[in-house]
């Protein structure tokens, strides 16, 4: 039997690593990868809670988060391709067209 505290700690570690990537990377592709890491930490928490409580609600939420991640990646990668076509690099600091 795995201690729930360990799983919570692992989930928090993954979330913090994802936050670090999100803050420090300037390449849009790596920002999306960091978001995936954060979502995986949350998913781990959901399935661990489902295991702890002995019911299936956590796994159903897992299905929803999985759908969310897939759609987020689809839209995000379409944006990545467009941005690369526009400025030949993925540096998010050069995206200044929306500035007034």
């Amino acid at each position: 039997m795995i201690e729930t505290t360990w799983v919570i700690i692992l989930s928090f570690l993954l979330f913090a690593i994802g936050t670090f990537g999100l803050l420090s990377r300037r390449n849009l592709l790596f920002v999306l990868l960091s978001l995936e890491i954060m979502l995986n930490g949350i998913i781990l928490l959901f399935v661990a809670a489902s295991n702890l409580h002995g019911n299936n609600d956590g796994q159903i939420m897992y299905l929803l988060v999985l759908t969310l991640a897939a759609s987020e990646v689809a839209v995000g990668l379409a944006l990545v391709v467009q941005i690369y076509k526009q400025q030949q690099s993925l540096d998010v600091d050069t995206l200044t067209k929306l500035r007034g």
């Binding site: 928090f12 913090a16 936050t19 670090f20 803050l23 420090s24 300037r26 790596f30």
Partner: peptide
């Protein structure tokens, strides 16, 4: 674009976050 030298600020913030969590 990315080197560990420039990532000190986010690293500090993430370590604080880890400690809190």
């Amino acid at each position: 674009l990315f080197s560990l030298k420039t990532a000190k600020g986010p690293l500090l913030l993430a370590v604080i976050l880890v400690i809190e969590l």
